[in-house]
Simulated scan of single mutants.
Amino acid sequence: MSDQALLNAENRKKQLQNRRLSLNAEILQLDREIGEIDTFIKTWHLFADAVSTPTKDVEAETKTEQSSTHKNQNRKNSTKEEVAAAAREAIRRAQRPMTRQELYDTLVGDGLIIEGKEPLAVLTTMLWRMKDEIRKLPEGRYDIAGGDESASLHDDFPDLLG
């Protein structure tokens, strides 16, 4: 393969990766909007039912719903693929490897859903399952996995291992 063909292939790969990140971000936005609409519809039904059946104790029903489940049943965790793509983007924006807590705060702040009894453990598992996308460094921070992309991005990051 000629040098130009290799450069073309590498450029196309980067274009496709960037497009995938963009599409994932768009999907996350759509999921957020759908969630907001679901919440509105549920709230509308709650109030519409309360008006049509005035004997119904709406407050008691709401408390029962909240205590019956820790999570909102309409909300599902973001997929590991979405989390990995968003983590890659967060690390790119930070221009350095990030701790698990930093990643969690950033990803949730960006609208991803990472819930469970131990949300940080859920995030760790998702990232572990996406080793080709995100790698855990020996000092515990997370970085973009693979070749020259992560190495060139973080050349100025001090070597904490000596």
Rank of each mutant, 00 (worst) to 15 (best):
Q15V: 00
W128P: 01
E82R: 13
Q95K: 12
L123R: 12
H45L: 12
K56F: 05
I144N: 03
L112K: 13
Q73S: 08
V83K: 07
G35V: 05
L21W: 08
V122W: 12
K13D: 06
S2G: 13
A121H: 06
Q73F: 05
K14T: 07
M126F: 10
Q29I: 00
L6T: 04
D159V: 02
D143N: 11
K76E: 03
S78Q: 02
L46F: 13
M130R: 06
G146C: 06
N24K: 12
S52R: 15
A86R: 07
E133A: 15
K63P: 00
R129Q: 10
T69L: 10
A50G: 07
M1K: 14
T55R: 15
M126D: 00
S78M: 09
Y104E: 03
E139R: 13
I134K: 10
G147F: 09
R93M: 08
F157D: 01
T69I: 01
A121Y: 05
L153R: 15
A48T: 04
F40L: 09
L160V: 06
N18K: 15
R129I: 00
M1R: 15
T39D: 03
A145T: 01
L30T: 06
Q95C: 02
I27D: 06
T106R: 15
A90F: 04
A94S: 12
E102C: 00
G35Q: 13
F47N: 00
E59K: 13
L112Y: 09
Y104A: 05
E89W: 01
M126Q: 01
I114Y: 09
D148T: 05
R12M: 10
L30Q: 14
Q4Y: 14
Q29Y: 11
T64C: 04
E149H: 07
G146E: 05
A5D: 07
L28E: 08
E89H: 05
D49N: 11
S68Y: 09
G109R: 15
T106S: 11
A94I: 01
Y142H: 08
R92L: 07
E10S: 07
I41A: 14
S67F: 13
L161N: 03
T55K: 15
E26D: 12
K117L: 12
W128G: 04
N74C: 09
F40A: 05
N74S: 13
E81A: 14
Y104M: 02
K13H: 10
A87D: 04
V58R: 14
A9F: 08
L153N: 05
K71L: 04
Q17P: 04
Q4A: 14
K76W: 09
R135H: 05
K14I: 03
P119F: 13
F47H: 10
E82C: 09
T99A: 06
T53D: 12
L28C: 12
P97N: 11
N11H: 12
R32F: 06
D110R: 14
Y142P: 03
A86K: 10
E82Y: 08
G109E: 01
V108A: 10
